[in-house]
Design a protein around this nucleic acid. Structure first.
Lengths: 190, 190
DNA sequence: ACCTGAACACCGTTCAAGT
DNA sequence: ACCTGAACACCGTTCAAGT
């Protein structure tokens, strides 16, 4: 649809957009080329294969995170919440982002910022690495679970138990209280 | 290779075995049939499509968990650790297990057991749901991150910072301290 | 009832050929 | 240098046909 000279950047951006809009399965190398107004095979001149394309997609998502974090220095909760928000913006990309190891040093940049926020919060450098890893893992698991629930209604518990009582927390409130518990607990334990 | 009358159970078991051995991408409906010593299309008589096959795979993994939990009553840490262990046994199935909502009531059974362990630990029913959800999300994120690291060596931090100091915790130690922090923190907060 | 096999519309990837 | 398009070996799914 767009008709400019092809670029890795352009291709990756189009791929992420297609994933966001139509889901991961809707992205094929051929449709990607067609969507860019070019021969289905033209993509292969700029990207060696689909795996490399996915690496680019992960990079793009993490660059969004870095942009967010670069605006101002952030504390631990703000940094992790920014991470959560960026991931939530690309629910269909989560199987890719969560599954591919951080390969490029570029993709690593935002995590160095987050790590700094843990050190700032009083963690020693090795403790900060452990705590950040826990928090990042918690966040990824949370976001995936949230994205995996197409039918919002089901409850994995017997509603009889809650007659008249309080309700379990919604996703955002739950995320925050879990994050605080995790970080504070790790502060005293590491 | 095996030559018995086809069954949904048998098909699902073979699918999980193939995923475990050769990875998720190596599983196709056609190879599955061939692997079972039958026409590639025979599978479709027992399973409507690949999505339903994946639902069966999730069910199979969670049944393993239930078997583990049924052996004896477990506390929260034991229950969550059993969950972690079962997931770690099927690293290539994680993109499926983490991504599909729990559809069948059967798949829900082990989580009711885990929920009971949270109530046993002093959480009120709604608080137990929130806490369990946090712990399950944390565990899934942890296991996925662990499975996504094919090159064990890379460190997302500057090794200079740790000259002479202690090392960050390994995956198992980190999981445990994170889980304890999370659960204890939630106990006082919910 | 259960399995077979041809057919259809797709894939990812390679590669010679065009400009 | 950058794009095209044919070709190859696969997919998931459908469906008529066999037993």
């Amino acid at each position: 649809v767009e008709r400019r000279r092809l670029t890795r950047e352009l291709i990756v951006a189009a791929a992420l957009a297609m994933i966001d809009e139509d889901g991961l399965d809707a992205l094929s190398m051929r449709k990607l080329g067609t969507h860019l107004g070019v021969d289905p095979m033209a993509v292969y001149y700029h990207v060696p294969n689909k795996a490399a394309l996915f690496d680019g997609v992960v990079e793009a998502v993490l660059r969004e995170l870095d942009d967010e974090l670069a605006l101002s220095p952030v504390d631990v909760v703000a940094a992790m919440t920014a991470y959560r928000d960026v991931l939530r913006r690309h629910p269909h990309a989560l199987p890719v982002v969560s599954t591919r190891p951080i390969r490029t040093p570029e993709a690593l940049v935002p995590f160095e910022r987050i790590l700094a926020s843990f050190v700032e919060a009083g963690f020693s450098p090795p403790a900060a690495v452990t705590a950040m890893t826990c928090a990042v893992e918690y966040t990824m698991g949370h976001v995936i679970a949230e994205a995996a629930e197409p039918y919002g209604g089901e409850t994995p518990y017997d509603p009889e138990l809650f007659a008249g009582g309080p309700e379990p927390l919604d996703a955002s409130a739950r995320y925050t209280v879990g994050l605080l518990s995790l970080v504070d607990g790790l502060r005293v334990r590491l």
